[in-house]
Simulated scan of single mutants.
Amino acid sequence: MSTNAHDQEIDLGQIGRGIINFFNRMVNAFFDFLFFIKRKIIIIAILFIIGVVAAFAFDTKVYNHEVAVIPNFGSNEYLYKKIEQVDTKLREDDDVFFEALGIKNYKDIVEVKIEAYPAIYTFVNNKDSENNFELIKLMAEDGNIDKIMKDEITSKNYYHHKISIQTKGMYKKEEFIIPLLKYLNSNSYYEIQRKITQKNLADKLSLNDSLIVQIDKLIILLSSNNSSGTITISEKNSIPELIEKKDKLILENQYLLKNQAVVDTIIKEESSIINIRHYKPLLLNNKILFPVLLILCYFLFYSSSKIYKKQYLRISA
């Protein structure tokens, strides 16, 4: 019994001394590092200054540009493929392609990409796509609606999309965005669709305007109790019905006019925000990263040289 207690006291004593030795080594290492910094402060300061100067010399100001667009006439897939093509041409340094587009200094463009705004409610309530709600219900049978919203196939069919462009230095809208939109809108198939749609909208608006005029005449005629033999509906019920029909036609015309303004191009530009300065996180900022890397390299070189000397002396002895 006493032997076990004695062994436990020895084990506890060893553990205690081990903990104390560990903390002593930590304290010694900390002060060794502190005194090393003090001895080498001039070298470290010089390396820090060199790093900052190098960061300013090699640092390029990166800017983001965003173009909100609406693909019309079912051109969503076409839009995505075209943006993918432009980004590929950037990586291939295709001079001929960008000269044909009228884009200069394309080598300062880092990347071009596109993504959908996650507006599933607009997608479901789209007046021109009555089956979208049933489609979402069918796709979301597993209950993971968030996954469905972010799914590439689903998101491509959203109403609003964002083209993101990243450049080295500032860019004017005329230098890239306008030529890009012109290129996206140069498609003979969708151009025919655009013309047909515009004509259909204009014809429908004209017909609605004609119906509104006829309804106004009927309301005036019925209100004046000057019934014509051609009018067979009851005066009591006809005027409210005609007013309701006129209101519907006016609301439809408002929608058609709004839609007509949207479908005047294949890829409709909603808005553009250019030259948004891109700031890297603090630790990835070159003005911090370069000096820190230089100083760390110096520490690594110094430690390696000390280890080498010790090993050399050991082998020599």
Rank of each mutant, 00 (worst) to 15 (best):
K137T: 02
D146I: 00
A100M: 08
I103Y: 00
K107Q: 14
V86L: 02
V110C: 05
I136V: 07
F97W: 02
D146P: 07
F123D: 06
V96C: 02
I103W: 00
V110S: 08
D128L: 11
M139K: 14
F133P: 01
K89E: 06
D94P: 05
K113V: 05
L135I: 02
E99M: 02
E84Y: 12
A100L: 09
I120A: 10
G102E: 08
D94M: 04
E130D: 06
S129Q: 13
E134N: 08
N126C: 03
E134S: 06
N125I: 09
D93W: 08
K104Y: 00
F97R: 01
I136P: 00
I83D: 07
A119G: 15
D95N: 15
D128T: 13
L138M: 04
K147Q: 12
F133Q: 11
E84C: 06
I103D: 01
N144C: 06
V96S: 12
D87V: 04
V124I: 14
I83Y: 00
F123N: 10
I103V: 13
N131I: 04
D87R: 07
A140Y: 05
S129F: 09
D128F: 10
Y106F: 11
L135C: 02
V86H: 00
T122V: 03
K107M: 10
E115V: 08
A116D: 12
I83Q: 01
Y121N: 15
L90Q: 03
D128M: 11
N105Y: 04
Y121G: 13
D108G: 15
K104L: 01
K81N: 14
K107D: 08
A119V: 12
E134M: 05
Q85N: 12
I103T: 03
A116P: 13
F97H: 03
L101Q: 03
A100R: 14
I136K: 10
K89W: 03
D146G: 08
K104R: 12
K89C: 03
M139G: 01
M139L: 09
I136N: 02
D94V: 03
A140W: 06
S129I: 10
K137L: 04
D95L: 09
N105R: 14
F123G: 07
S129E: 12
N105M: 03
K82V: 04
G102L: 03
D95A: 12
K127V: 10
F97V: 06
F133T: 07
T122F: 05
I120H: 10
L135Q: 10
D95P: 11
Q85R: 14
N105C: 05
P118R: 02
Y106R: 12
G102C: 05
D128Q: 13
D128C: 06
